[in-house]
């Protein structure tokens, strides 16, 4: 049986940290390594920051939704906004591409997600918001110390 949680919160940048804790605390039930946990938290930061600054252009009264499902040794993460959406996804995922160079964005958000997760799916259309689906498998055996 799988264990699920969904959290929705205001598009305020101080909630980025809240989102990191919420997802990490939930995922902790699978007993990941601290490195795996850091990877998950980094991905949550990137996706939530994108929703706030790109999706909502820093409007504070919008909502971001994260849903998280635990199956055996796998976590599925969905991060969703109802913001402006992405016009050209192929371009957006290019390393170093950013539509906001004036904010000193690195353009590495999607590259980081692809590096730290086993699967990344982006569903987005202009004015229909953005949904990022991510899957990560945790290594089964932490054998060395048994």
């Amino acid at each position: 049986m799988s264990n699920t949680m969904t959290v929705e919160f205001s598009s305020i940048s101080s909630n980025e940290s809240f989102a990191r804790v919420t997802v990490a605390a939930f995922v902790s039930q699978l007993d990941p390594t601290m490195d795996e946990l850091t990877e998950i938290k980094t991905v949550v930061s990137e996706a939530v920051t994108n929703a706030i600054i790109h999706g909502y252009n820093d409007q504070h009264d919008k909502k971001i939704l994260i849903s998280c499902t635990l199956n055996d040794d796998e976590v599925e993460l969905i991060i969703q906004d109802d913001g402006v959406g992405i016009d050209n996804i192929d371009e957006a995922i290019q390393p170093l591409f950013t539509s906001k160079p004036e904010l000193e964005r690195s353009g590495m958000g999607f590259t980081i997600m692809e590096n730290f997760m086993d699967k990344v799916e982006i569903i987005s259309n202009p004015d229909q918001g953005t949904t990022i689906k991510l899957i990560k498998q945790f290594k089964k055996s932490k054998t060395l110390c048994n």
Partner: peptide, 11 residues
């Protein structure tokens, strides 16, 4: 000690 990062439960 372990030659790898601990899991969250180990910590």
């Amino acid at each position: 000690d372990m030659g790898r990062t601990p899991t969250i439960n180990e910590l």
